[in-house]
Simulated assay, not measured.
Amino acid sequence: MKNGNKKIAKEETIFIGIDLHKKRWHVTIRTTDVELFCSSIPGAWASLEKQLLKYREHPIYAVYEAGYFGFWLHDYLINFGADCVVTPPSLIPLEYGNKVKTDKRDSRKLALLLAKGMLKRVHVPTEKERYHRQVVRRRRQLVNDRVRTQGRIKAELQLYGIDLPNPSGKWTQIYLENLSRIRFKDRWMQKSFSHLLEQYRFLDTQIAQQTALIKELSETPRYKEKVKILSTIPGVGILVAMELLLELQDVRRFQKADQLAAYVGLTPSQYSSADKVRMGRITCIGKKALRAMLIQASWQLIRKDGVMREKYDKIKVRAGGKRAIVAVARTLLIRMRRLLLDNVPYVPGVISSI
Rank of each mutant, 00 (worst) to 15 (best):
L213G: 00
P42C: 10
R130D: 05
R152V: 14
K288V: 15
Q209N: 15
V136M: 08
L245G: 00
K104I: 05
V344L: 13
Q249T: 08
R152T: 12
I162G: 06
T13L: 06
E156S: 08
W171K: 12
E243P: 00
P234R: 09
K276W: 10
M1R: 12
I351E: 07
N3H: 10
S298D: 04
Y131R: 13
K54C: 14
M336G: 03
R252D: 02
L341K: 01
L260G: 02
D342Y: 01
E12F: 02
Y175W: 13
T149W: 09
N3V: 14
H21D: 08
C38M: 09
I78K: 12
R338M: 07
E177S: 12
Y346N: 07
D75C: 08
K316M: 06
V63T: 05
W72P: 00
D145C: 10
Y271L: 12
K104S: 01
A115D: 12
D83Y: 10
L113I: 05
L197C: 14
G349K: 06
L176F: 15
H195L: 15
I207T: 05
V240Y: 03
L20H: 02
I78G: 01
P234C: 11
A327F: 02
K276C: 11
R281D: 11
H195M: 11
S352D: 08
G151K: 13
G235E: 04
L230D: 10
A111I: 03
K99D: 09
Q270N: 14
D75F: 06
D103M: 08
D145W: 06
Q206E: 15
V143G: 01
L294I: 07
L53V: 14
I8G: 01
F15Q: 03
I153V: 14
G81F: 15
Y346V: 09
D83W: 09
I351T: 04
T126G: 07
L339C: 07
S231I: 06
I182Y: 09
I229T: 07
S352V: 04
A66F: 13
Q158K: 15
E177Q: 15
G169Y: 03
K54S: 11
K215R: 12
R148E: 08
G67N: 09
G286A: 07
Q134D: 14
S47Q: 01
R56S: 13
R56T: 12
T232M: 09
I29A: 02
R148S: 09
V100W: 01
L179G: 11
D19T: 00
D103Y: 04
D342T: 03
G321L: 04
A111C: 13
L294C: 04
M118N: 11
